[in-house]
Design a protein around this nucleic acid. Structure first.
Lengths: 250, 250
DNA sequence: GAGTGGTCTAGACCACCGT
DNA sequence: CGGTGGTCTAGACCACTCA
């Protein structure tokens, strides 16, 4: 009944070997979507593994979306859900290095001022409070790639360190300047058309497709401690999602 | 020494209770990023739990990115990485229902033809092979939301079932018509400007920001079995990423 | 060498599901 | 009712790290 066997001398731990065996059976079609796997006890008997080890293996497969468990019923092969996608955005700096391009951040503007209405709303500022604003231009190989505009509460008396603003991530700037640690972030991504100063800084024609990545940072008490956005060149950034054996459903 | 305790009468399993206790200590700042947690054995003693139960709890926290383990050294509180984001795209139909809008898919065009050069390249077609193309308009509350254009190998002699094309997901259409199960997908997302027939179908001015979601579907042998794209209205769709306690690093 | 996390075992009780 | 997965226990051995 058992096809392959567990190699106890291998460096690959048994739970992972079993996962590979089962994955193979699923991808080869021996186990089809909707089919039930042998029970945990049965797999344990078949491959001479304890039940906890079998469960560790099934956890791995479940995390990858290949199988899913129903208490009281059994474990089943999932149906591929190809229309579901997960995108990951890496930090700009690392992303550029990964691509082999030399990144650079240029501080374009910094100032403290009374907030524009939109900004005051986003940061939930009280009347009279002021904002610290900064604008950075992100380049790669001296080509402008993105414009960053960020707003945060201005704390009176605190020095504004320009070199910090130049290379630190927004959340770090906030925790350094305002003594609060942002612990939650909300990011909104939309397509937009480049306009005004953004188009100028990016050296692209007005109306060109760009990404608009809006970001809210929250402190532990759910206060908004930072708001702002990136404008990325649409022709230089593509969100890619590889759905390997892919998340399943049912 | 122990702060809170495990409630053995609760319905919440002990491993989860401990996870909540530790999460609380992390979010409240009692445990700061970089701090080491008590060892697994120590936590077990402190809360009267077996080591496996403590490990299950730490797994939960590690999956959420709150902590990370170093073999031989210990388990540490992670540093928040707020600039990293993960976006998930749900299927259009479910997404609309979730929003309380009634979804509809209209089949705009279907035809079999010699492929345009671009399509032939994407699908890696041999000379003389033909493609099955279809175009769908996705609506919500009778408002056009997206245009879908999909291309796949045409298999001679197979009937083209229009009602299938109307409501089935692309990967299902392929597996039904071509007897191959797509097992991998590659998705590319870019901002674009609406043009030509797309703008007409979506009833938006040419040049409006839209999403262009390009999709490749692969069979088990890495053959491209489907290619196509969606054009989504940029004003109606926003990618949202909530980075709750957020993935950590280090 | 003492302590850490990673893995494994052979039991156990429970809630849930189908018949 | 018997079988399933979900959880828990009290041991064990290993490779690794650090003093």
């Amino acid at each position: 009944m058992a096809g392959d066997k567990i190699d106890r001398k291998s460096f690959v731990p048994p739970y992972f070997q079993l996962a590979q065996i089962l994955e193979q059976k699923i991808l080869s079609g021996e186990l089809k979507p909707g089919d039930s796997l042998p029970s945990e006890n049965e797999l344990g008997r078949e491959y001479n593994l304890s039940r906890m080890t079998v469960r560790k293996c099934l956890n791995v497969l479940a995390e990858r979306g290949l199988v899913h468990a129903h208490p009281g019923r059994g474990t089943f092969v999932s149906r591929p859900a190809l229309d579901r996608a997960v995108f990951t955005i890496e930090e700009y700096h690392q992303e550029m290095l990964r691509r082999g391009l030399s990144p650079e951040a240029r501080l374009i503007a910094v100032h403290v001022s009374r907030p524009a209405e939109e900004v005051g709303e986003k940061l939930k500022l009280k009347a009279g409070e002021r904002v610290l604003y900064f604008c950075r231009l992100l380049l790669a190989e001296n080509v402008p790639m993105a414009v960053e505009r960020k707003y945060m509460h201005f704390k009176k008396g605190r020095p504004i360190l320009e070199n910090e603003l130049q290379y630190k991530a927004f959340s770090e700037v906030i925790s350094a300047h305002n003594d609060v640690l942002p612990v939650r972030s909300r990011i909104l991504l939309r397509p937009a058309a480049a306009a005004g100063e953004d188009a100028e800084l990016l050296q692209i024609p007005p109306g060109s497709p760009v990404w608009r990545l809006e970001q809210f940072l929250y402190a532990g008490d759910e206060t908004v401690v930072g708001w702002g956005f990136f404008i990325f060149r649409g022709d230089r950034f593509t969100l890619v999602s590889e759905v390997r054996p892919l998340k399943g459903v049912d």
